[in-house]
């Protein structure tokens, strides 16, 4: 299914103030892959996501979704296929009820109201919050808001899910629920996060970004067990792979390398 492929070719972007955020980034993500994009604060992760979604346009290089270039003319089509979940769900839930919010995308594409309802209910059931459909977004808990934001994107039935820090500000139980949910999705997933334990569980492939450039691109377990690489990029080995601080027992790294 090559039409779901996302490809960037020597991508470069600098902000109007001259700050160079992205330098020469090339990668290609295939259908069904789950890719974690990690890096220190200010490494360029969020800028990269904005370039993929066509919120920003690159100064150099190009982005292809399937065989289509991301340009102003193709944005409507691109955005139907790529769904992005924002870091702060409040930025994304702007309607007065959850139902209307999840319906916002499908209605903008002028779908029939029956089809809209079906999609909304499917999306809400997938994330397990169909009982909240009549509630106002500002009355929900952090975990529920996150679920609603994901449903709002799922209702557009995208091929690719792009998420910016999906586990940020979630309590441990909500985080676990989210991880299980993400693992169940068959979409192509692109996830940026500092929660490396989550990335380790959800993403088979990891791209490490340092100062706007790709520092490493490869198998998730290989990268997340490479202490020197992570250290050089302002990161550290996921807690799940670190030795126990209380009893000093060595973690069985083999468990992760399947």
């Amino acid at each position: 299914m090559s039409h779901h492929k996302i490809e960037t070719k020597s991508l470069g972007y600098s902000y109007p103030d001259g700050h160079v955020a992205i330098k020469n980034i090339s990668f290609s993500i295939h259908h069904g892959e789950s890719v974690g994009i990690i890096g220190a604060n200010g490494a360029g992760k969020s800028t990269l996501l904005m370039l993929l979604m066509g919120i920003l346009f690159p100064n150099q290089g190009e982005i292809l979704v399937g065989d289509v270039h991301v340009t102003k003319n193709t944005l409507s089509m691109i955005r139907q296929r790529l769904g992005m979940v924002f870091q702060d769900p409040d930025d994304q839930l702007f309607m007065t009820t959850i139902y209307d919010d999840v319906a916002f995308g499908p209605r903008n594409y002028r779908l029939d109201e029956n089809e809209v309802e079906q999609r909304v209910m499917n999306a809400l059931e997938t994330v397990g919050i169909s009982h909240l459909k009549e509630r106002a977004p500002f009355k929900l808990s952090g975990g529920e808001k996150r679920a609603a934001a994901i449903a709002a994107v799922l209702s557009m039935e995208p091929d690719v899910l792009i998420m910016d820090e999906p586990t940020a500000a979630l309590d441990p139980k909500s985080r676990r629920r989210l991880i299980n949910l993400l693992k169940g999705f068959e979409h192509t997933k692109i996830i940026t996060s500092h929660d490396l334990d989550m990335v380790l569980e959800v993403c088979k492939r990891i791209i490490v970004i340092k100062d706007g450039e790709i520092a490493a691109d490869g198998n998730g377990e290989d990268i997340l067990t490479n202490a020197d690489l992570l250290d050089a990029c302002g990161l550290e080995i996921p807690l799940a792979l670190q030795n126990c601080p209380v009893c000093g027992v060595n973690k069985d790294k083999e468990r992760w390398v399947k």
Partner: peptide
Amino acid sequence: QRIYQAMCLRGFTGEYHTG
């Protein structure tokens, strides 16, 4: 700005549909 971006990403073109 972030809200506006979120709206655009979900196909918002300025018209508001309630269904």
